[in-house]
Structure formats: structure tokens, C-alpha cells
């Protein structure tokens, strides 16, 4: 009962935050509200007993991305442009996509369903054997780093590639600009 109330409150605050984000046109406020949104999501993950995910969401979503978004605002513009065209078509697209997504979830097993495919085959193996095979109390760690070591190597490589990509885009521009200036000076 308590959990239902907590979930209800968190979800309503999430929706209110989302509407507040849409209504705002000062980007600084939008970024701060997005950080609040992430924090609320992290709390929802805690309510679902997924503390590791909540930890990541709070650190990355509410912490780092806020800083990076502020950095982006500082480089670009402080306010959103007022909409010039009527917003009916975008609204329609969003509503149809949302309805499609909700329709898609109808086929999914209920939350906590013991007969769900995911909790019939692999999960019981991990939960019963990980202490014997890995001997690490936190099963999330033993799945992430050992059973699923290949996936995590891939994830690390993705983080690496994303970082290198951002660096190349941002530093490449500076190089080009400097080269342009030099060419202008020559001419």
C-alpha cells in the first residue's frame, strides 16, 4: 500500500516536471528541471529495488548531464525560439507514438510476474549459483563484470568511442577555425 502511494506521488511529480519542461522557454530552467526529472526517475528505480541503476541515474542523469547541458547552453543560446508554426502536427505524432508504445507494453509480462520469460531461465541460475561460482555478495556486480563480461567490455568500448567522437568534433572545429583565421590573415 505504502509503495503504491509512493509510486503514485513519484509518477505524478514526474508528469508535472515534464509539463513544466515543455512550458518553459528559458533553457537554464529547462536544464535544471531535467535534472529534477532524472532525480525523480532515480527514486522510482529505488522503489523498484534497482539501487545500482538508481545510483547511475542520479550520478549521470542528474549530475554530469546537467553540467554538460549547461556547457552547451553557454556555447549556444540561453532561450528557446518561439514556435513559428502551429504545433498540431507534432502533437499528433507524439500522441500516436505514445499510444503505440503503450499498446506495445500490453504484451509484456506483468511487473514481478514469476512466469515471465526473463525470470524462468537465466535469472534463477545467476541467483542460485553466483555465490558458489563467483562468491561476490552483490549479484549485480557478478553478472555485470563476470557472467556478462563481454557485454561490459562492449559498453566500455562504447563509452570510449563516444568520448573520442565528442573530442574530435569539438577540437576539430577549433583547428578548422584557427586555420580559417590564418588563411584570412594570409589573404
Amino acid at each position: 500500500m505504502t509503495e503504491t502511494i509512493v509510486n503514485f506521488i513519484l509518477f505524478s511529480m514526474l508528469v508535472i516536471t515534464a509539463f513544466a519542461i515543455v512550458r518553459q522557454d528559458r533553457l537554464f530552467t529547462v536544464v535544471m528541471l531535467a535534472s529534477v526529472f532524472s532525480l525523480l526517475t532515480a527514486m522510482l528505480f529505488i522503489a523498484l529495488d534497482a539501487v545500482d541503476v538508481a545510483f547511475t541515474e542520479a550520478a549521470v542523469g542528474a549530475g554530469i548531464s546537467t553540467v554538460l547541458m549547461l556547457g552547451t547552453i553557454a556555447l549556444t543560446a540561453r532561450g528557446a525560439k518561439p514556435a513559428s508554426r502551429p504545433q498540431t502536427l507534432p502533437l499528433l505524432v507524439v500522441l500516436v507514438t505514445g499510444a503505440g508504445l503503450v499498446y506495445g507494453t500490453l504484451d509484456m509480462p506483468n511487473f514481478g510476474d514469476p512466469n515471465a520469460p526473463a525470470s524462468v531461465h537465466l535469472s534463477p541460475h545467476y541467483l542460485t549459483n553466483s555465490i558458489e561460482e563467483i562468491d561476490v555478495p552483490n549479484v549485480v556486480t557478478s553478472i555485470l563484470a563476470s557472467y556478462r563480461g563481454f557485454d561490459t567490455l562492449g559498453e566500455t568500448a562504447v563509452v570510449f568511442a563516444a568520448g573520442i567522437g565528442v573530442l574530435m568534433i569539438l577540437s576539430g572545429l577549433r583547428h578548422r577555425r584557427r586555420k580559417d583565421e590564418e588563411e584570412e590573415e594570409d589573404a
Partner: peptide, 28 residues
Amino acid sequence: QHSGILYVEAGVGITVTGVMVAIYYAFA
């Protein structure tokens, strides 16, 4: 398994720290 997990988690931590700080430097 214990030492293996220690090494790979250290690898993950180093890369994530590096990428986050590098992106921040690039923006700032």
C-alpha cells in the same frame, strides 16, 4: 573471479572518469 572483477571494474572506472572529464574540458 574476485581479482578479475577488480581489474575489469578498474578499467571501466578509468575510462568513464577519462571520458567525462575529457568531455567537460572540451566544452569548458
